[in-house]
Design a protein around this nucleic acid. Sequence first.
DNA 1: CGCGTGACGTATC
DNA 2: AGATACGCCACGC
Length: 109
Amino acid sequence: MNDELHERIRAVIADVPAGTVATYGDVAALSGAPSPRMVGRALAEDGHDLPWHRILRANGTPAPHLLHEQLERLRAEGVLADGQKVDLRKYRWRPDGDEPSEDEPPGLF
DNA sequence: CGCGTGACGTATC
DNA sequence: AGATACGCCACGC
């Protein structure tokens, strides 16, 4: 049943901690969705109970009709957005990856 | 059963 | 910045 897939997608989204964001592609990969678009559809149809505002696009921009709403919610959680884009490399959710041993060394780049 | 369309995408040109 | 190609699923005809 596809319901299981929906449940899995929702589970992954529900597993995203506050102050963190994830992309549709990430959720799709983690949930096993065949395509990131299914994630968006799953949310549009059944994401009313989920922190959908933590799900952004690959470039860090949320959906157009929810852009403002989403940014407001994210801001409330500590995720600041620059006009419309969010720093994915900074707020991107990492599955249990508390490993500050890489990524951005201070002063570099 | 096939086809067209929509849906909160992504990557590439 | 825009347009295009690809992908998967649900719905209506």
